[in-house]
Amino acid sequence: MNTVKQLLKHKNFMFKLGLVICIGWIVIAIFAPLLTPYHPINDQNIVGRFQPPSAEHWFGTDSLGRDVFSRVLYGSRISMSAGLITVLISFGVGILFGGIAGYVGGVVDDVMMRFSEMVQSFPPLILAMVIAAALGPNISNSILAMAIIWWPNYARLTRSIVISVKENDYVTASRILGASHLRILYREILPNSIGPMAVMATLDLGNAILMFSGLSFLGLGVQPPVPEWGAMVSDGVLTFNYWWISTFPGLAIFSVAIGANFIGDGLRDYLDPRMRKRA
């Protein structure tokens, strides 16, 4: 708790801005039904389609006459959770994989790292497309596909941090006291490695949302008529005269990505002892 308080006191304005943006989107995602004037799927009005932004439809209407504002707000539910889940899965798998490789070292490390390099050697978007296409295009398969291509980043970062942290005397001291390997990893190494990884996770949140939107844009993420930002941008591309259809979901993606990056930057500055004022 203390750390969180110190973090908030930290003068970084950008960090707070990022926090406001991301928490704002999470609140919107949770309370979407209360905030939207129309239903995102059922309130279709073919007669009133392609309406420009107005007092009635703040972000205009799309090709089926649905309210873009409502769809953007509802879209946050899927986009935000897809990004978060992808990052969380990769984070968990990466920590486990990289932690073991870095801690055990030797042949185990070599084999595990060659495996992660193998995954990384594929072009990410194409591999995700292949996996999503093979499993069938729906939300959970797309998230799975993204997690599969995403975890090696975390594994490699975790490994390199663990290798440097395990050289510390307090790890040796713990071994001399007779602690088990699991206990050493969990009590000594992990708490001292988590910082840079948390930074990477926040920075990645934006990327994951972008990529998921990319998959949806290509028709592999969510299927219409479910509102999702990437899919909505893709909707508007064919009818570019009606700029509002693509622009507003695009701005939503942009805001989350940049908010997450601000948080990540702030976190990194805070964790870097040279940037941190003594408490």
Partner: peptide, 21 residues
């Protein structure tokens, strides 16, 4: 593990021998 009780070590660098967290 039993032997661990009988012999211990004091380290050179006091700043790295304690878990900072």
């Amino acid at each position: 593990k039993e032997f661990r009780c009988k012999s211990q070590m004091i380290f050179q660098d006091p700043s790295s021998c304690l878990n900072p967290r």
